[in-house]
Design a protein around this nucleic acid. Structure first.
Length: 705
RNA sequence: GGGCGGUUAGCUCAGCGGAAGAGCGUCUGGUCUACACCCAGAAGGUCGCAGGUUCAAGUCCUGCACCGCCCACCA
């Protein structure tokens, strides 16, 4: 029973984690004596390519606190873990490996390449889950799911065919986002816009001259402003706003598209912003979404001049064919200059769409793809939140969700990569957007489409905890999928956790070396200290500027807990037979002196406060309340008082010491599970549970104190 | 172009209508037996700026500035 003077996490953590795993109590079916009520969180499945960063750490801490809290309260608690196959992201990693060998995926062929993907997955795919264990995550590993498991694939197929039969999935040639490097389409949410310095070029589009002898018409032209002159090769019109008086006379006229020498009409459309540039814009239906709409409004045809490699197609004049976009741009500018058709150029800030997985500039090109109709699904998803069936915490993130749903376009669900779920139709070689399968996560993990026991018991799940960057990418799609396939929302609360930033308030970035590796923190301070320090900083959804000082505070606090326990164990050593039933509330309340009453009263307040804060996702507040009680009320005041106490009172004091310690351990356990478990294992209690993890959460009973 | 969040002690943050708080850091003192990753105590803030509401405002309202994030069809 002798404890070392300082707490050493390394001697405790792995041992305790093994103890938990051996107990089987992460699995709700193995845990004895619990209430019927369930509590379930399906983990946001990390990508198999991922390695733990501070965002994961924060999210893991949050979820594990909730799960352990509810488990102690006696609920049938399931935290279901798993990983995501991460289509493009994972494929890119293996393609990079291949590149080192001087090969591409096309050299291997589809089948071999997918074999290679699975090899990679087997080797590295579970690393991140092992890292979660280091943090103490109490997931039921026996239920672990991977989004390409056989059952999962079946479920995806079922879901696809369900939509297909309903007529909500259709195939069509549309302008889509295309990554020339990944060689695949991307959904709107898979783009990241980056602001760059660009230019705005003003180009003269000469008016068609029917009668060459009319002098007035000579040298007449429409001035058009563009940031992407190369797309002019595919222009099918020039458009102006119908209310724009400057161009009143141009209606019905035609202009000659420079360099191509093609005749194109001037059209009037409300989509044109008269304040931009000259108020007259070029219309390239094949390579711009707005232009595509304008083209539809005026029955214009396409002319695709950029291909899937990002090169100029044969639709363009010969001299430009095969050039890359940048080369084509240069040449076009030169050619325009020499023809004196370039009026001027201005510096201009421009937002460039980049592939969110490889940062290559994305092109807009027409392509044959599969789409999922969004109108009805979006309405369902919106309604569920409006009716309060799902709550966002903090509430303001509802807005992000509603705004997206309001304007959402049909979801392009086909991808031209190989790693993923194949579209389950004959002669289809495309795979589904990785988010199509992720969208089914909360119920497929529980067994859907089979109607098994887990699905019945645990769906709808209770909380989804996630970062704000995937509210639409993932959360919204889970919500409508849940409503469509289960007829019920997939979770009741969406907790949108803080973003962990650097001390300077910037995004943590691996490549810039500004990231903090949680594993380093665990190594340096211990898992409990890391958890407590992180939880301490979780305040009302506010972003966290990470400072390591807080982890140090966590470490000191752990040491304080350790030493308080040492003291209590020393104090009660003399009382050979013990003392407390772990489940019994206390001790008789007579014979208490004021010091006793005070500590028990404070303890009582602390229990109430911790309950309240945890129910409200106020992790930082709960941590601070506990810290304050344990350190100041218990250690600084009560323990110091007991050192002065008369010998006659000892036994009562011993009981209170043990009682307050035990109760504190229970309250602290969700935050610092390892150290509290380790101490619990050493307490002399009469009817000790096998683990603190499955003890009974304290009631706040002694209000009369 | 819209929207959201932030601006409080040297640092990171609580407080959101009634006498300025925590952790870390700093300083002073202490420590024979739980802990120096300790104890007792102290210093340190005209609560971003300017107006307004109120008996009373970090706390509510209006405007502005700076920092950060999100959305958008600025071609």
């Amino acid at each position: 029973m002798k404890l070392s003077k300082t707490y050493s996490p390394k001697q405790v953590e792995d041992k305790i984690y093994r103890l938990w795993q051996k107990s089987g109590f992460f699995n709700p079916d193995k845990r004895p004596a619990q209430r019927k009520k369930t509590y379930c969180i399906t983990i946001p499945p990390p990508n198999i390519t991922g390695s733990l960063h501070m965002g994961h750490a924060l999210n893991t801490v949050v979820q594990d606190i909730l799960i352990r809290f509810k488990r102690l309260q006696g609920l049938r608690t399931l935290w279901l873990p798993g990983t995501d196959h991460a289509g493009i992201a994972a494929q890119n990693v293996v393609e990079k490996e291949l590149k080192k060998e001087g090969k591409t995926r096309f050299d291997l062929g589809r089948e071999k390449f997918i074999e290679r993907m699975w090899d990679w997955k087997k080797k590295y795919g579970n690393i991140i889950l092992d890292q979660l264990k280091k943090l103490g995550a109490s997931c039921d590993w026996s239920r672990k799911v991977f989004t390409l498991d056989k059952n999962y694939s079946e479920a995806v197929k079922t879901a696809f065919l369900h939509y297909y039969k309903k007529g909500w999935i259709y195939r069509g040639k549309r302008v889509i986002n295309w990554c020339p490097r990944c060689q695949t389409s991307l959904s709107d949410l898979e783009l990241e816009y980056k602001e760059e310095k660009g230019k705005l070029w003003y180009i003269k589009y000469p008016l068609e001259q029917k009668n060459k002898r009319t002098k007035e018409q000579k040298n007449k032209y429409v001035l058009v402003a563009t940031t992407r002159p190369e797309t002019m090769l595919g222009d099918m019109a020039v458009a102006v706003n119908p209310k724009d008086k400057r161009y009143k006379n141009l209606k019905g006229k035609k202009v000659i598209l420079p360099l191509v020498e093609r005749e194109i009409p001037v059209v009037a459309d409300n989509l044109v912003d008269p304040k931009f540039g000259t108020g007259a814009v070029k219309v390239t239906p094949a390579h711009d979404f707005t232009d595509y709409k304008i083209a539809q409004n005026h029955n214009l045809t396409f002319c695709q001049i950029i291909d899937e490699q990002g090169k100029i197609t044969e639709e363009a004049p010969l001299s430009y064919q095969g050039l890359t976009i940048l080369r084509a741009r240069q040449k076009i500018i030169e050619d325009l200059k020499s023809k004196k058709l370039l009026e001027k150029e201005e510096a201009y800030k421009i937002s460039i769409p980049k592939c969110y997985r490889c940062s290559t500039t994305v092109e807009f090109i027409p392509s044959q793809q599969w789409f999922l109709k969004m109108d009805k699904l979006a309405k369902m998803a919106e309604k569920a939140v409006r009716q309060g069936k799902i709550k966002f915490i903090p509430k303001r993130f509802e807005k992000t969700y509603f705004d997206w749903l309001k304007n959402v376009r049909d979801w392009c669900i086909s991808r031209q990569i190989w790693w993923g779920h194949k579209i389950p139709l004959k002669d289809e070689s495309d795979v589904l957007d990785t988010w199509f399968s992720s969208a089914l996560w909360p119920f497929v993990t529980l067994g859907w489409p089979q109607k098994n026991n887990d699905l019945k018991r645990f769906y709808p799940t209770d909380v989804l905890s996630t970062g704000r960057d995937i509210i639409n990418l993932w959360v919204a799609r889970m919500i409508f999928s849940g409503l469509e396939f289960m007829k019920k929302v997939p979770f009741k609360d969406v907790y949108v956790h803080a973003t962990v930033l650097t001390r300077e308030g910037k995004r943590m970035s691996k490549s810039l070396g500004t990231g903090v590796n949680p594993l380093d923190l665990i190594e340096k301070y211990g898992a409990d200290a890391t958890r407590f320090g992180i939880a301490w900083q979780v305040m009302g959804g506010q972003d966290i500027k990470f400072v390591e000082d807080n982890i140090m505070m966590g470490k000191k606090f752990c040491n304080k807990i350790w030493n308080a326990a040492r003291f209590v164990l020393l104090e009660i050593e003399s009382a050979k037979t013990l003392l407390l039933h772990s489940s019994r509330v206390l001790v008789e309340t007579k014979n208490l002196n004021n010091v006793d009453k005070r500590i028990l009263g404070e303890l009582n307040k602390t229990i109430k406060s911790v309950n309240k804060h945890l129910e409200n996702f106020q992790f930082g507040k709960a941590a601070q309340v506990l810290y304050d009680f344990f350190w100041h009320d218990f250690c600084d005041r009560y323990i110091e008082e007991t050192k002065r106490v008369d010998i006659g009172c000892q036994q009562r004091t011993q009981k209170i010491l043990l009682y307050v310690l035990l109760t504190s351990l229970k309250l602290l356990h969700p935050f610092v599970p390892f150290i509290t478990e380790e101490i619990y294992q050493k307490l002399p209690l009469k009817d000790k549970k096998p683990c603190l993890m499955v003890e009974t959460w304290p009631n706040s009973l002694h209000s009369h104190l």
